[in-house]
């Protein structure tokens, strides 16, 4: 039996009849064409599918679409349209924080959620956030630098380039 989902995704009002078993990640990718949300493991380990639900980072593969009823969901597409994104994307560019890019949208959603949480961010917080994402090519050294630069606690090493 289908259920009615009303939610806001990237400032778009959604009103859809869906199957309860539809995962949020599949709603985003298959029904709404927000394919920037990547699906890696589909059981919560890799972090590629991380989106922002009501301001908090969450795994869209471990969230039923219907659990996002009456919520506000932001994907990388929504994040990219926000004012905070320029600083984050420049930091990832300058510090070579991505290579193949598969894990990047999830990492950026987490970093943006951390920035917007209003928390006074320490280096340790960055590590805790990056912990929740698997990267198999870029390496965490550059991702950590980029993330720290994105939140303004690292200026970058000019001599390194």
């Amino acid at each position: 039996m289908k259920v009615n989902l009303r939610t806001q995704i990237n400032d778009r009002e959604i009103d859809l009849e869906i199957e309860p078993r539809l995962l949020l990640s599949d709603l985003l990718r298959e029904h709404l064409n927000f394919t920037g949300t990547h699906v890696g493991c589909s059981y919560g380990v890799c972090g590629a599918c991380t989106v922002i639900i009501d301001g908090k980072p969450a795994r869209s593969c471990l969230t039923l679409a219907i659990q996002a009823n009456n919520c506000s969901v932001r994907t990388i597409e929504g994040v990219a349209a926000s004012s905070t994104f320029d600083r984050v994307s420049s930091a990832f560019h300058q510090e070579h924080g991505l290579q193949c890019g598969f894990c990047t949208p999830g990492i950026i959603c987490s970093i943006v959620a951390l920035t917007e949480s209003g928390k006074n961010i320490a280096e340790e917080d960055i590590d805790k956030v990056v912990d929740g994402h698997l990267c198999r090519c870029t390496g965490y050294v550059n991702i950590r630098k980029a993330a720290k630069k994105a939140v303004g606690i690292y200026q970058g090493d000019e001599n390194a380039r």
Partner: peptide, 9 residues
Amino acid sequence: IGHWQIRTR
């Protein structure tokens, strides 16, 4: 427990 991204839900 898990990661922040898990503990939020």
